[in-house]
Design a binder for these strands. Sequence first.
DNA 1: TAGATTGTTAATCGATTAACAATC
DNA 2: TAGATTGTTAATCGATTAACAATC
Lengths: 206, 206
Amino acid sequence: MGNEMIPDIVVGRLPLYLRTLQLMSAEGRQVTSSQELGERLGISAAQIRKDLSQFGEFGKQGTGYHIDYLANQIKKILHLNKSWDVVVVGAGDVGHALSRYQGFSNRGFTVSMVFDNDPAKIGQKVGGFIVESIAELPELVEKAQIKVAMLAVPAAQAQQVTDMLVKAGVKAILNYAPINLLVPQDVKVQYIDPVLHLQRMSYYLE
Amino acid sequence: MGNEMIPDIVVGRLPLYLRTLQLMSAEGRQVTSSQELGERLGISAAQIRKDLSQFGEFGKQGTGYHIDYLANQIKKILHLNKSWDVVVVGAGDVGHALSRYQGFSNRGFTVSMVFDNDPAKIGQKVGGFIVESIAELPELVEKAQIKVAMLAVPAAQAQQVTDMLVKAGVKAILNYAPINLLVPQDVKVQYIDPVLHLQRMSYYLE
DNA sequence: TAGATTGTTAATCGATTAACAATC
DNA sequence: TAGATTGTTAATCGATTAACAATC
């Protein structure tokens, strides 16, 4: 219903709003305004109001936004009113850190399996998970109806593993390998490459 | 010289171009075109030409771009014709992964120290580095003239550590803590929060 | 030369901001 | 009521794309 034409750039800011609202809530706050949110985020108040207005009317004139209410609405919009099971592929340092990261569970995601192709790692424990063989990935991911994966394998294997994930029904991939992935249109990919961020900043260094 | 008004969004794409050029170079390729680059990156050829034209003329009509030459020019623009020493603050899982990550050295950065405030970790080896106490950070960072830091401490301590880093002369911070940092105008911050990426994708999941 | 591709200008598109009536 | 802040419209700003002369 006039839904899928919301700009992705707007969608991308919602998690930022949510994070700040949850921080405010943890501080014991009840109510905020677009102005205050904007100041904490470095975003204009007008933009926050405009972004939110794409999804409904969540505030009260003269008062602002009820923090918990708005946070919950944003959670619903982002489909975070459930917890998504996520698999980690690659049990190296990055996969290890991801599988142990405590910051997922209360933000809508639960790591449920860890995979690797190294026989020395398969069967070992990493972050509380027994590392499974990538050979088992298609069956396990499909059976568990996993839709989200974090990819932490070497760049040379990233596309191949991606193809497996897509075939097994995964629709969202967070890719830590420094390489562009080719996926069907209905599969989303987000990229994390710390070096890109560092290089972007070094432009401004003397 | 008509220099500092280049949009940051353009600067942000240069590392992406560089990464692709270096990949092509590793494939043994000599020459490419804005069209080919665009296809590999999912960016229009016109945009790539426009971006590059902000910095000079690097191509030849009818031929395209010499890959190694263009890569080197971009490296110079991004100040990557030297290697920047970087410190890692926080020797938890993320800091551990960062300090061992092999992908920095050939892309312009060298991890040179690791800090933590946990007495149980100080003096221990992490990724080939002896973990230093955060108490030593101001002196060590200033003496070594470190300009770049990666921050992997709990959110609650991130701002405080940031203030120390800034005071010690750091001008670029890659922040893994899920929190907005306040810094002076001449200090750049980039953020990595995997959950933001996951949440952005979950919008598109059913 | 003919074909290809650059660098650049002008046109288009989209995102951000300013402003304000509505209203709590 | 008076003050504050929303949701929204119109104005502005900036980024992307299309098109093409220049030229290798």
